[in-house]
């Protein structure tokens, strides 16, 4: 599904504060699997995730999606791929404050120009599925952490992405909510989606739902 070869990511290149966040990553991620990237803080997990999710481009190396090299594509095409292929759940959820839950869920679909009826139905169905039907018109800043995360998941699913990406999804959740989240991941997997997440939470990396754990240290892949 996703193939990374010789990936290097350098921040502030050729400046005094140059920093190599990733240094020679070769990795193949199979489709329809749940993969966890683990490793200590600063090891480059988030950076790797942004490259996989087309949020950033590598300094060197190639990213292939279904065999197609996407690392050299201009931003407009990357955006297009990101919109159709990926759904994102951010660590801080990154919901737009002041908007209702359902409005937040619909946001990624606006540039595709769906009809009002159709988009609204899809968003409400997703919220209902994540047990948020009665909270759909509440402003997101009034929601609890777990509810906010579920809104973020619904938002990630609104364009029906093949791949769901989540950065530290359980960092802000207690154990019960973290377990509930793993349950949702299993559902996504059962639907045939690919899930890639980062975590240093043993509850995630040790979960039976996770098919594969990739360990990182100092920007390189190390044996787990």
């Amino acid at each position: 599904m996703i193939e990374l070869s010789g990936i290097r990511k350098v921040f502030n290149q050729s400046r005094h504060n140059e920093y190599r966040a990733l240094d020679g990553i070769d990795l193949f991620l199979a489709g329809r699997q749940i993969t966890a990237l683990s490793g200590p803080s600063g090891s480059g997990k988030t950076t790797l995730l942004t490259l996989i999710g087309c949020l950033a481009r590598p300094t060197a190396g190639r990213v292939r999606l279904r065999g197609e090299d996407i690392s050299g594509l201009p931003e407009r095409f990357l955006t297009e791929i990101r919109r159709r292929t990926f759904g994102f759940v951010f660590q801080q959820f990154n919901l737009v404050r002041g908007l209702s839950a359902v409005d937040n869920v619909m946001l990624p679909a606006y540039p595709l120009g769906p009809t009002h009826r159709e988009l609204r139905d899809r968003a409400e169905a997703l919220l209902a599925r994540l047990h948020l039907a009665d909270r759909r018109d509440a402003r997101v800043e009034w929601l609890s952490g777990g509810e906010q995360q579920r809104v973020a998941i619904a938002r990630a699913l609104i364009n029906d992405p093949e791949i769901v990406i989540a950065d530290e999804p359980t960092a802000n959740l207690d154990t019960a909510l973290a377990k509930a989240f793993m349950g949702i991941l299993e559902e996504l997997h059962a639907e045939g989606r690919t899930v890639i997440l980062t975590s240093h939470d043993p509850l995630v990396t040790g979960s039976v739902a996770v098919h594969r754990v990739v360990a990182l240290r100092d920007g390189r892949i190390v044996p787990p």
Partner: peptide, 13 residues
């Protein structure tokens, strides 16, 4: 922050 979110979820520049 909002602009960042919109771009990340698939809005074009």
């Amino acid at each position: 922050r909002e602009i960042g979110i919109l771009k990340a979820v698939g809005w074009e520049t």
